[in-house]
Design a protein around this nucleic acid. Structure first.
Lengths: 215, 215
DNA sequence: TAGATTGTTAATCGATTAACAATC
DNA sequence: TAGATTGTTAATCGATTAACAATC
């Protein structure tokens, strides 16, 4: 017992980013009542080599069975557990502009365990109203709300020039994760996790691909 | 002259995905009237090693000068050119729901050369109206509009179960790139480029990171 | 000239793919 | 038992980092 037990081997980000894809596809298979699947079939559907599928899954332990493959329902549940989807998260949306509203209207998040509790906005005439049955509060109430309602995640849907400052406020009251839609790189304490959705960068990457294919 | 001239060495996706970050930071430096920057300074601001910065930039040629560093304005322009930002793209948004509307209201895309021309929606009562001064048409007019207005890019903001079918329609009338916000993996001809924005997957990755940091 | 910093080659590290023995 | 397919080790490939000569 020299500390070699619990999940130590650092899992690479490349692997982690593939897990949601497996998860989604397995969920789809479940809804089609498919019971078992082999790494080879998975590989065909997901454009990943069978070898990599097995390598990926074995980072977390043996979920399959020789000669049989993987049980779809079991594997889906296990990957869900690995991703932390076996519990619920409370989320707020900061910035009730178009993007904030689009996210709060998105059905799928709640289904996956991400419960949106409220929105916050600087605009006093937005505050006090409701959006999609969710309350909209002024920014000054943000800290106390997070503490009282034990909010885990904040989606940052505000202009880039205010994002860093608001991020720091969120970090200071115990938020665990920031879902950052602003176009800047946030600097936050190590205990707060940031996931970026950089739309403009995404579009530029597409632009590059189009340009290349035209040559 | 045995065909060893023009841009052959295939640039890796990892490099391409870093280019927009350089571009954005250099744009910021320009607005602050910074004239020159070294790979070391870039590395500090972008959390990339100086060695990698130089390696990345030299994939495309020597943009710097020994003992001096890089000229900010020149480098920004060159990276823009590499990304294909030195021209304008015409874009339509398919699906005028919350997400589609959020994107059409986003200021930054047009600034970077991505001009949104119109929206399309199945809902007949959405069609015919205007959104943010942009026309909304019914889906049946999509193909002819794309051809007539030489549309380059379509942002797919429709439910996942209809995404593949609509994608095929878009491909068949000469679209060059799909910006896919639906949660499925699109199958398209090789000449059409797809850039995915998988929001649910992004959120699951954040969930994983939070779970890990709590252990 | 001395100092700084690039461009580029070589070394290292990590991720992907191939192969195959284990076993259901 | 024969066939299928995993788990896992070894080989390959590619990306990142280190080092340093070139040169502004």
């Amino acid at each position: 017992m020299d500390g070699a037990e619990e999940g130590k081997k650092k899992i690479s980000e490349a692997v982690i980013r593939r897990l949601p894809r497996y998860y989604r596809y397995l969920s789809e298979l479940m809804s089609r009542n498919v019971e078992r699947i082999s790494s080879k079939e998975l590989s065909r559907s997901l454009d990943i080599t069978a070898s990599q599928v097995r390598q990926d899954l074995n980072q977390f332990g043996g979920f399959g069975q020789q000669g049989y493959g993987y049980n779809v329902e079991y594997l889906q549940k296990e990957i869900g557990r690995i991703l932390g989807l076996n519990r619920r998260y409370s989320m707020i949306i900061v910035g009730a502009g178009n993007l904030g509203r689009a996210i709060c209207n998105h059905q799928n998040f709640d289904r996956r365990g991400f419960h949106i509790a409220a929105l916050f906005d600087v605009n006093p005439e937005a505050a006090g109203r409701e959006l999609n049955h969710l309350p909209v509060y002024g920014m000054e109430q943000m800290e106390s709300y997070i503490t009282e309602h034990r909010i885990d995640i904040a989606a940052l849907c505000i202009p880039s020039n205010r994002a860093q400052e608001v991020a720091m406020r969120l970090c200071s009251c115990g938020i665990k994760g920031l879902w950052n839609f602003s176009s800047i790189e946030l600097k936050v304490p190590a205990n707060v996790k940031v996931e970026n959705v950089h739309l403009t960068e995404s579009l530029m990457t597409l632009s590059y691909a189009i340009k290349e294919s035209e040559r």
